[in-house]
Amino acid sequence: MNDARRYQMALAALTLATLILFCLSLLVGPAGIGFIDSVSALFSERRDAIALIMQEIRLPRALLGLMVGATLGLSGAVLQGYLRNPLAEPALIGVSASASLGAVLAIYTGLSAVFPPALPLAALAASVVAVLIVQAMAGRRGSVLTLILAGVAVSSFAGAMTSLALNLSSNPFAALEIMFWMLGSLTDRSMTHVWLALPFMLAGWAALLTLGRALDALTLGGDTAASLGVDMRRVQFLAVFGTAASVGAATAVTGAIGFVGLVVPHLLRPLTGGQPSRLLPTSALGGASVVLAADILVRIVAPERDLKLGVLTAIVGAPFFLWLVWRERRKVA
């Protein structure tokens, strides 16, 4: 009873925070437009400079922050529940780096210029491969260690291939874009990117959100869950496909943003009474808040530098990760 109430409060607070951060994201930018002007320009029919800035530059940026953050939080929560492993996260197990590789191959070969959906599709395909490799390496009862090692291997390989592909491009700018693919950014993304990513993200979210009950059962162990009528093959398909589709699409348009999927579910787990089904929506909202906040900070801290988002999420995420590893080590010892 108390748990349920706390969960409802958390859900309400996170919804409010996400809403506020989304509005703030629309209001922050180098052009320094006043509040009333911004809001009226957002719904203006006239295509003047301010309307252009609000509708074509800031709106897609805020929308993508919301969508990508929700994707990372949600998929982190699902992966941790499904793999029953506190260190599972799209970036750590190599999904983000592989999605980057897929996207890079689609963009720099010119394929996505001819056929735009090739971009999210290639990222999706590469993410599926990454999840399947890591899962095969870690095995069904995989330890934390094997999962992380397999994730590190897949990540470094995908990262190296991404660098190679960019270095081999005859365009001199391509090599400099390694940073974007490794650290992620929302700068100057457009509605084109939103429309490109949205269908894949919606499909991924739908798949992931149906997993709540199955993940609850999985906390009792795989065999118990199976005896409770959970179809493990279906769960695997939905978790892998949902993560690959949503994270693939997110990475294809904003690059790989690390640590959000790791930190957010951990922070919110105490508020959900240890029930994965409650963790899923809260983590989605929490992830959206974190990415929106990081993207606002990027614009306030160093507006002229085009600081990458991954820099900020890593500053917060890496110490947290070390703390988790430390705790795991004590548990083992």
């Binding site: 252009l52 800035i53 963009i107 720099y108 700018f173 391509a174 084109t192």
Partner: peptide, 21 residues
């Protein structure tokens, strides 16, 4: 910088709807 035939994100700014407008 628009002359390169190989694609890169660097040139995406020229295709941004706000830039085109």
């Amino acid at each position: 910088d628009r002359g390169y035939s190989a694609p890169a994100l660097a040139q995406q700014g020229f295709d941004h709807p706000a830039f085109r407008a």
